[in-house]
Amino acid sequence: MSSTDTPTEETDAEETDATATDTGREAMLEQLTGELGDSLVGSHLEPGIDLTVRVAADAWADTAAFLKTGMGFAYFNFVSAIDWLPSPFGRDMDSQVDISLEGSEPKETEEMTWGLAGGETRFQVFARVNDIVNHRAVTIKADVPEDSLTVPSWVGVYAGANWHEREAWEMFGISFEGHPGLRHIYLPGEFEGNPMRKDFPLLARRVKPWPGIVDVEAMPGDDDEADADGEDAS
C-alpha cells in the first residue's frame, strides 16, 4: 500500500525490496500463464499491492482447481460479480441544490468502461483466494457470456463458494453451472428482479428525490450567513 510497511504479501519470512519489481507476484503470474495459456486473457500487476488476472469463462473452475492444488491457494475468500453498465439513473443523488453549490455535473457516460485487467461483457464474476502460508493473494475475474449468463461453479473446488454463488445469482442473475441448488439467500421468495444490477432502481429515490443539503436552522450567531440554498426543512 504505502512505502512504510516493509513486509509485503509475498515474503517468505525474508526481507524483500518491493520497490519497482514484485518478484513474488510476477512469479505467480508466470505460473498462471504457463498453466492456463490462452485462457488467461488479461492481467494487471500493481507492484507491492496486488495481482489481478482475467480468465475466459469456461476456464473459471479450472483456474480455481489449479490455484488450489497446484499453487497452494487453499483459503477461499469470496466470489461475487460486477455490473459494468453505467447506471441509467445517473448518480441518483444529485439535486439541483448540490449542483448549484458545488458545480458538479452528474456523470452521464454512455460507454461501458471496465476496471483492472480489462473486460468485454456487461457482467463479470470476480473472486479472491489467499495462500495463508506464504501470505499471498490473487484476484481473479472472468467475463460472463452475454447470451447464457452462466459460468461454471466453484463448489467442487472450494465448498464455501456455495453461499457466495447463491448470493451472486440472487443479486445479479448469473447462473452457476454445477451448483447443487441455486435459491434465494437474502431476499424473500417472491422478490422480483436482481437488485444489484445497475438498471434496478432504488424506488424510494425515484419517488422522493434526494433533497440535497438541507439546513434546518442556522447555527446561533450566523443567522444571515445561513446557506444560500433556499431549501427549508420539508
Binding site: 432504488l202 424506488l203 424510494a204
Partner: peptide, 13 residues
C-alpha cells in the same frame, strides 16, 4: 421511519 436505509429495496420504512 427506515432510518439510514430509507432508500433500500428490502427495508420497511
Amino acid at each position: 421511519c427506515g432510518g439510514p436505509y430509507w432508500d433500500s429495496y428490502s427495508v420497511t420504512k
